[in-house]
Amino acid sequence: TQVHVDGVTYTFSNPEEAKKFADEMAKRKGGTWEIKDGHIHVE
């Protein structure tokens, strides 16, 4: 599962880990995350 944050791609083999990471990054940025085309995007 790929997580895209500010133009950087992080790859996780476990989708649950990817979601936890996205959640943390979104909180830090004061933003949100969503799943697009099977990838997670942090806004």
Rank of each mutant, 00 (worst) to 15 (best):
R28D: 14
E17F: 07
E16K: 08
F12W: 03
G31D: 05
V42C: 03
G7P: 01
S13D: 13
W33H: 03
V5C: 09
G38S: 05
E34C: 11
T1W: 13
D23P: 00
T9L: 09
K20R: 12
K27N: 14
A26I: 14
N14P: 00
V5H: 05
T32N: 08
T1L: 10
I35F: 13
F21D: 00
D23R: 08
H39K: 08
K27E: 14
N14H: 10
E16T: 10
A22Y: 02
V3E: 00
E24N: 05
T1Y: 11
G38A: 04
N14M: 08
G38M: 04
P15G: 10
V3K: 00
T11V: 13
V3P: 00
A22T: 01
G30R: 05
M25G: 02
E34K: 11
G31C: 08
G31R: 03
K27S: 11
K36T: 06
M25A: 11
Q2H: 13
M25C: 06
H41S: 06
I35G: 04
Q2G: 05
G7N: 10
K36N: 06
F12P: 00
S13F: 11
T32E: 06
D37G: 09
V8G: 07
V5F: 08
T1C: 11
E43R: 14
Y10V: 05
K36W: 07
H4Q: 05
A22K: 01
K29E: 13
H39Q: 12
A18K: 00
F21C: 06
I40P: 02
E43Q: 14
E16D: 12
E16Y: 09
K29H: 15
T32G: 07
A22M: 02
E17P: 03
T1H: 08
F21P: 00
H39Y: 07
K19P: 00
D23C: 10
F12R: 00
G31V: 05
K27I: 13
G7T: 05
K29N: 15
G7A: 06
E16S: 10
H39D: 09
D6F: 06
P15K: 10
V3Y: 01
A18S: 03
D37C: 08
A26V: 15
M25N: 06
H4N: 06
A22Q: 01
M25F: 06
F12G: 00
S13K: 11
V42R: 01
Y10K: 03
E34F: 14
V5W: 03
A22R: 01
I35K: 04
K20A: 14
E17Y: 08
F21G: 00
K29C: 11
Q2S: 10
K36H: 10
K19V: 15
E16Q: 09
I35L: 13
E16C: 08
A26E: 04
T32W: 14
V5S: 07
G31L: 05
K19Y: 15
I35T: 06
T32F: 13
E16F: 09
G30W: 03
Y10P: 00
G30Q: 07
T11G: 07
M25Y: 09
G7E: 07
G30V: 02
G31S: 05
G30P: 03
H4T: 09
V3C: 02
D23N: 09
E34T: 14
H4S: 07
T9G: 04
A26L: 06
D6L: 04
G31Y: 08
F21K: 01
E34Q: 13
S13Q: 12
K36Q: 08
G7D: 09
D6N: 06
A18G: 05
H4Y: 11
Y10M: 04
D37E: 09
E43W: 15
G38E: 04
E16G: 08
K36R: 14
T32M: 08
N14T: 12
A18Y: 01
A22C: 03
P15T: 12
G30C: 09
F12L: 03
G31K: 03
F12C: 06
E43T: 15
G38Q: 04
V5M: 12
H39A: 12
D23F: 06
G31W: 05
E24M: 08
P15V: 14
K36F: 08
I40W: 04
D23A: 10
I40Q: 01
Q2R: 11
T11E: 11
A26F: 02
D37H: 05
S13N: 11
W33L: 08
G31Q: 03
V5Q: 01
F12V: 01
G7V: 03
V5G: 03
A18F: 01
D37R: 01
A18W: 01
T9D: 05
M25E: 15
A18N: 00
A22P: 00
D37Y: 05
S13L: 12
A22L: 01
K20L: 13
K36P: 03
D37V: 03
V42T: 02
W33S: 04
Q2W: 12
T11F: 14
K19I: 15
I35Q: 07
E34N: 10
K27Q: 14
G7I: 02
T9Y: 09
E34M: 12
V42P: 02
D23K: 08
K36M: 08
K19D: 03
I40M: 04
K27G: 11
G7K: 07
G30T: 02
G38C: 07
E24W: 12
D6V: 04
F12Q: 00
Q2C: 07
V8I: 12
G38R: 02
P15Q: 13
I35P: 03
H41M: 09
E43G: 13
H41T: 10
G38N: 07
K29Y: 15
I35R: 03
W33K: 02
A26H: 02
H41Y: 15
A18L: 01
I40H: 02
H4L: 07
G38T: 04
Y10A: 02
T32P: 02
K19L: 14
E34I: 14
H4C: 06
F21Y: 06
V42G: 02
Y10G: 00
F21L: 02
F12D: 00
V5L: 08
Y10L: 04
V42W: 04
N14L: 09
G31E: 04
E24S: 05
P15M: 15
A22V: 01
E24V: 08
V42N: 02
V8N: 11
I40N: 01
K27V: 12
E17M: 10
V3G: 00
K36I: 14
K19Q: 11
H4A: 04
H4P: 00
Y10D: 00
G7W: 05
K36G: 03
T9V: 14
D6M: 06
K27A: 14
K19M: 15
K19H: 10
A22W: 01
E17D: 13
E17A: 11
W33C: 05
K36Y: 08
E34G: 07
V3D: 00
W33I: 11
V8W: 11
A26M: 04
G38P: 02
A26D: 03
T11Y: 14
K27H: 14
D37P: 02
V42I: 12
E17T: 10
A18M: 01
R28G: 13
V5A: 07
G38V: 03
D6P: 01
E17H: 10
A18I: 00
D6T: 05
F21S: 00
F12N: 00
G7Y: 06
K29G: 14
E17L: 10
K19A: 12
H41C: 10
G7M: 06
A18T: 01
V5N: 04
P15A: 12
T11P: 06
T11D: 08
K27C: 12
T1M: 14
F21H: 02
K27Y: 13
M25P: 00
I35A: 05
Q2A: 09
T32Q: 08
K27L: 14
S13T: 12
T1R: 04
H39V: 15
D6Q: 06
E34D: 08
W33N: 02
G30F: 04
V42E: 02
I40T: 01
E43A: 13
T9K: 09
M25I: 14
H39I: 15
G30K: 06
K19E: 13
T11C: 11
K27R: 13
K19C: 10
M25V: 14
P15E: 14
G31P: 02
E43Y: 15
Y10N: 01
M25W: 12
F21Q: 01
K36C: 09
K19S: 09
K27M: 13
H39F: 06
V5D: 04
F12S: 00
S13G: 11
K20P: 01
Y10Q: 02
E34H: 14
T1A: 06
D6Y: 07
T11R: 09
T11M: 12
V3L: 02
G7H: 07
K36A: 06
K29L: 15
G30E: 08
T11H: 13
E24R: 07
M25L: 08
H39M: 13
K20Q: 13
R28P: 07
M25H: 07
R28W: 14
G31M: 06
E17K: 09
F12M: 01
D23L: 06
V3A: 01
W33F: 05
P15F: 15
V42Y: 05
K20Y: 10
F21A: 03
D23T: 12
F12T: 00
A22H: 01
H4R: 07
H41K: 06
V3F: 01
H39L: 09
D37I: 02
K19N: 05
H4D: 05
R28T: 14
G7S: 08
D23S: 10
